[in-house]
Amino acid sequence: MPTRNVLLITGASTGIGAATARKAVHQGYSVALAARSADKLTALEQELGPDRAHAIVCDVADWDSQKAMLQSTLERFGRLDAVFANAGFSKGSPFYGGPDKPGEWRDMVMTNVFGAAATARLTLPELAKTQGHFLITGSVVGHITSTRNLYSATKWAVTGIAQSIRNEMVGTGVRVSLIEPGVVDTPFWGAVPKPGTPELSPDDVASAVMYALQQPPHVDINNILIRPVGQPH
């Protein structure tokens, strides 16, 4: 049996990450599933089959936790062909007149910005060996200004991270794709009010991820900006 391509997904326990894992396994990948929620990861691993899926409890805001994630992936599958740096969350507190909770901003920046950058730093050497593919979850609000929310600034940062990685990896054969969803119906929102617009499903975004992954090796899908019909911004 030929070796299956291996896809590592952070933020894999729910939403876009879990939907991508399901599609990837269906299309022949082995998947390493990384997130903080052990129970949800274990359930997804059992659903997909332990021979195809490997659950790894990981906090992407912690460098050593990510190092252990990569080591566990390589020990389990022996290679790495693609990485989807998808972990992230939003806290909607405003800049002016909001609660005195700088900790929630710190956690968001550490997950959304540092976490994504650390995933890249750790995994790109492995992807260079396989001429693999690095994908990262940005957002529509990485192009526009979202009021009352530092989250938008973290996604502007992710847009810059993706462009910088692409420039660095020229000549290595590594492809880099920035996936930029609009409003998606996922647990991501938590207590943050959703905009009053139509919504994408996690499967819609996962299909975009798989589209980028399945292009020929000489084709690099740099950006996929995907909104539900009717979302104005």
Rank of each mutant, 00 (worst) to 15 (best):
G230V: 01
H143V: 03
T10Q: 06
P181W: 14
G97F: 00
V209W: 12
R121Q: 15
A55H: 04
G97H: 00
K23M: 15
K40T: 03
Q214L: 14
I9V: 06
I144K: 08
V219D: 10
V141T: 08
L200V: 14
T154G: 01
C58S: 07
I136M: 14
M110Y: 03
H54S: 15
A61L: 04
W63N: 06
V174T: 09
L122W: 09
V31S: 11
D204W: 06
R52C: 06
G49L: 13
G190R: 12
R79T: 14
P102I: 03
E47P: 02
L178Y: 07
C58G: 00
D51T: 14
A35K: 02
R79H: 06
A116Q: 13
Q131T: 01
V60R: 05
I144P: 00
V170H: 08
G138E: 11
A118Y: 13
L225H: 15
M110L: 15
F95N: 04
A12K: 00
V25D: 07
L127W: 12
T123V: 09
Y29Q: 02
E199Q: 14
G28E: 13
I161Y: 14
C58P: 05
K101I: 08
K194E: 10
C58K: 02
V140W: 09
E168T: 13
C58F: 04
V184G: 13
P181D: 12
Y96A: 07
P181V: 07
C58Y: 00
L80D: 09
H133I: 06
T159A: 14
D39C: 01
F188K: 01
S139I: 06
P193F: 00
G17E: 10
V209K: 05
D203A: 15
R52V: 06
V158G: 01
R22P: 10
V60P: 05
L70C: 14
Q46C: 13
P102V: 02
P202G: 13
I221M: 10
V158Q: 07
S177G: 01
Q163H: 12
